[in-house]
């Protein structure tokens, strides 16, 4: 089985200019914010750990832009991209990475747990596989209450080898839940090539048949391809057709986490994938549709300005106050366990 992605469909206008500009803006926004996070880490302003999606932006943008308001995203610790793609302000994300009081969770969650329920971001989960069953539960609620939202669950190739993945896929299929499982296959589980530790060539796609699902493996670096696959899966979920499992072939330009210089890559691999940089691909796509350089340059400049402003706001933000140290352990707002 080759890792060759499916061919991009011919340029056509089923997506439309407004959506394409939104897809582009979303990808550039993620790229700019994550690049900034990396820079801030080098300045020792991003603490703890962080896991970047540089190079994987088309997956987050494509799935998020195809969502309706009310659809729910469940992310992994590599969740900055998916959080930003749902419209969470850059300042809130960078603030959380910098563990400041202006962060999304005021520093109580950190980089690996970005959550913004008002944007439909129902959490970033740092235990591999944990959120697949949780997404099933949210989808069960939609099914039970006859609500038409879809739960979309993002995870990496490494997740396909943990038990919760298989429990969730079977459960979702048996209960016909409106959930879409999105595997971002970036070729490395963490530091180890996924092919070295997986019995089948397509870690998600080749498991689909075990759960009665269609094998779907797409080019995860082409936002149009991702967007179309997302729409199709969401329609299926909303119309009672049950879950989908979509494997998106992509590549992360950075290491697994900030601690990883990614020296395990074969020479030339990164460069080869950078030729298929999703933002580069999409910029060319926009031009092919006759969208002017000035429009593209304005989006780039707008995004950069917002990220610059967010960076300054985060630097100016105080640390979280001690008053929140033990709040929200229980629903009464506190942490009392005895009388």
């Amino acid at each position: 089985m080759s890792k060759k992605p499916a061919q991009s469909p011919a340029l056509n206008d089923d997506i439309g200019e407004d959506t394409r500009l939104e897809l582009y803006r979303s990808q550039v926004n993620i790229r700019e914010a994550e690049q900034r996070a990396f820079d801030l880490f080098l300045q020792n302003l991003v603490k703890g750990t962080s896991h970047l999606s540089l190079g994987q932006e088309a997956v987050a943008a494509g799935f998020a832009v195809a969502m309706k308001k009310g659809d729910l995203s469940f992310c992994t610790y590599r969740g900055h991209a998916h959080t930003l793609a749902r419209g969470v302000p850059v300042e809130k994300v960078l603030g959380e990475l910098m563990q400041r009081d202006n962060g999304l969770m005021r520093g109580k969650g950190g980089s690996m747990h970005l959550t913004s329920e008002e944007h439909g971001v129902m959490g970033s989960y740092a235990i591999i596989g944990a959120h697949l069953p949780i997404a099933c539960g949210a989808a069960w609620r939609a099914q039970y209450k006859k609500q038409d939202d879809v739960s979309v669950c993002f995870f990496g190739d490494g997740t396909t080898n943990i038990g919760a993945f298989h429990e969730a896929l079977n459960f979702a299929a048996v209960w016909k839940l409106p959930v879409v499982f999105v595997c971002e296959n970036n070729l490395y589980m963490e530091y180890t090539p996924i092919a070295d530790v997986t019995a089948v060539p397509s870690p998600a796609g080749d498991r689909a048949s075990a759960y009665g699902l269609e094998k779907i493996v797409i080019d995860g670096n082409d936002a149009d391809v991702v967007y179309r696959a997302a729409l199709k899966a969401y329609d299926k979920a909303r119309s009672g057709g049950g879950p989908s499992l979509i494997e998106c072939l992509t590549y992360r330009h950075s290491g697994h986490s900030r601690a990883d210089p990614a020296k395990y890559r074969p020479e030339g691999e990164l460069e080869k994938w950078k030729e298929r940089d999703p933002i580069k691909i999409y910029r060319e796509r926009l031009k092919a549709f006759g969208i002017g350089d000035d429009v593209i340059a304005k989006i780039d400049a707008d995004v950069k300005r917002v990220v610059d402003e967010a960076t300054e706001a985060c630097k100016a933000s105080p640390n979280p106050p001690m008053s929140i140290l033990t709040t929200d352990v229980y629903a009464d707002g506190g942490f009392a366990w005895r009388n």
Binding site: L72, M122, G123, G129, A130, H131, L132, P133, I134, A135, C136, G137, A138, A139, W140, R141, A142, Y144, K145, S151, G163, A164, E167, A168, N170, F171, V174
Partner: peptide, 19 residues
């Protein structure tokens, strides 16, 4: 199914969203 992770995970997802 005999899937304790799916049982508890599904319970959590349902609880988070209104059940």
């Amino acid at each position: 199914p005999i899937s304790e992770q799916a049982i508890l995970g599904a319970a959590m997802g349902a609880a988070m969203t209104g059940l």
